[in-house]
């Protein structure tokens, strides 16, 4: 079921989406550069489990179970009380925990997290996607019809 999300939730989701998608190295580098890392305690995990991925028959029809994927998740509480959650594909416990801490920080004060972590990651992702699009675009077929010489 689709959950109705309020505006801050939409922003939080957008940040979490970027974090989940971030290459582990890029995320770790940005997180290393973050000045005052808060003390945090683990609420759950970090742990690895499975999520069953679903597709739809015909692309848009009946849902079906396509196969599973490994997923890491972590929930943490930072000293100022915010609880953050981190989810990402793969078996990278450190990444899930960093995402959870960043999510908690985001709830405390979103602006610096957005400017110092989310924005750079988003830029990186956009560039990487653009590169992929341009590589595929070079393989685009330009069809033309042979004109029969009548004279």
């Amino acid at each position: 079921m689709q959950t109705q999300t309020s505006l801050p939730d939409t922003d939080r989701k957008a940040a979490l989406d970027v974090l989940a998608h971030a290459p582990a190295k890029a995320l770790a580098t940005l997180w290393d550069a973050w000045a005052d890392k808060p003390q945090h305690s683990k609420v759950r995990g970090p742990e690895v489990g499975l999520v069953m991925l679903r597709g739809r028959a015909g692309g848009g029809g009946t849902p079906f179970n396509l196969g599973e994927a490994t997923v890491s998740r972590a929930s943490v509480r930072i000293v100022t009380g915010q609880v953050g959650h981190g989810y990402c594909l793969g078996r990278d416990l450190a990444k899930a925990e960093i995402i959870a801490v960043i999510d908690a920080l985001w709830q405390r004060d979103a602006a610096p997290v957005e400017s110092q972590i989310i924005q750079p990651l988003r830029t990186l992702a956009t560039q990487a996607d653009q590169q992929r699009r341009e590589e595929s675009a070079a393989t685009r077929v330009d069809f033309f019809t042979m004109v029969r010489g009548d004279n």
Partner: peptide, 10 residues
């Protein structure tokens, strides 16, 4: 969270 997030891409 009460909403869906992306786990990444496959």
């Amino acid at each position: 969270l009460g909403f869906a997030v992306s786990l990444g891409r496959v």
